[in-house]
């Protein structure tokens, strides 16, 4: 199989695009594709400063590399969650290595235990009954919002790819989680004044394509999964979607893009129509649905944590 652009041996065949590319052309094609997505969904402009959530995995590091190559004003934020088995330490090391080879890039690192007093596993032990990923997601969303706000960033950027979005969509559609379906979008407008919008520039790229890009660019990312991701439902849905995809090429794009189109054509509520009544948290000031403390602050103060009212699964 040959590269469509130069006839050299293809490194990857993207069946849904009917496009095979050699290594050299793939690493040129990916940033152009991402730039088109950023413009199509009006995610951000080259004049705006944006903050990227960097985990150390392939998606966020590849995206950082892409945005820097495209000339966007992007800074990184890494949160060390203190996850066991050396996972968080290894993740942070990958992020630092990435930055060390790119002079001038700005990285903020937050050490959850050092700066807030407890790691994710410790918080989970205190809060029996809550799942690690739920606590972890809450912590990440809160800190990202806070840093974006303090730093005056126009948008929070995350590395969610098409496979991530399609897996979440399938899960939400099977359960008819209407609220989550309304909020799933490439661009999520701020839920309140002072917060940044959230954008996902990799939504039109597949996990394989992002991984191939990372590999070919020599990006050393954390390959092993977080110990809490084992048996995660996302993996189950991704597996099913990959099986559908092998039978019928383009299923993922059809499902996700078709969903976005159908939602707007049918006049169903999308993220822009979803506006709950919000109040500032009495401890940190971030907007929250119920008066009093936000869910993040309740994690630390020992007050009972209500699962509802917190936007789980969005970030």
């Amino acid at each position: 199989m040959k590269c469509r652009l130069c006839g050299a041996t293809a490194a990857i065949n993207m069946r849904q695009h009917r496009l095979a590319l050699c290594a050299g052309h793939l690493i040129e094609w990916v940033p152009r594709h991402v730039a088109r997505t950023i413009e199509k969904y009006a995610m951000f402009t080259p004049e705006e400063r944006v903050l990227l959530a960097v985990s150390g995995g392939k998606d966020s590091l590849a995206l950082w590399d892409i945005l820097l190559r495209l000339g966007y004003q992007v800074d990184g934020l890494h949160i060390n969650l203190g996850i066991e088995q050396g996972y968080s330490a290894a993740s942070q090391a990958r992020v630092e290595k990435f930055v060390a080879t790119r002079p001038g890039t700005r990285l903020y690192t937050v050490d959850l235990k050092g700066q807030y007093g407890a790691s994710v596993p410790e918080l989970v032990r205190r809060r029996r009954g809550r799942k690690p990923c739920s606590v972890c997601g809450l912590v990440k969303r809160h800190i990202m919002n806070q840093k974006a706000c303090e730093g005056g960033y126009a948008a929070i950027v995350t590395g969610h790819n098409l496979d991530d979005e399609v897996a979440v969509l399938l899960q939400n559609a099977l359960h008819w989680n209407v609220g989550y379906l309304a909020r799933q979008a490439p661009v999520l407008p701020p839920s309140s004044a002072g917060l940044a919008r959230k954008v996902k520039p990799l939504v039109r790229l597949r996990e394989r394509e992002v991984a191939a890009y990372a590999l070919l660019r020599g990006i050393d990312y954390i390959y092993d999964e977080c110990p809490h991701a084992q048996g995660a439902t996302t993996l189950f849905y991704k597996d099913i979607l990959n099986q559908l995809e092998s039978r019928s090429r383009g299923t993922k794009e059809m499902f996700y893009l078709g969903f976005l189109r159908a939602r707007s054509e049918m006049g169903l509520p999308g993220p822009e129509l979803e506006r709950a009544e919000l109040h500032p948290c009495s401890r940190c000031g971030q907007p929250t649905t119920a008066p009093g403390l936000c869910a993040f602050c309740r994690l630390w103060t020992g007050e009972h944590v209500r699962e509802s009212g917190e936007f789980d699964g969005e970030f």
Binding site: G57, D163, E207, V210, H228, A229, Q230, K238
Partner: peptide, 25 residues
């Protein structure tokens, strides 16, 4: 060690390393 497309024919002395691309976090 080189990324290849899925139609590539393998030889007896090749080493094929598979890199997982699915993440669940």
């Amino acid at each position: 060690g080189v990324l290849v497309n899925e139609e590539t024919i393998l030889e007896d002395d090749d080493e094929l390393k598979l890199v997982a691309v699915v993440s669940g976090g």
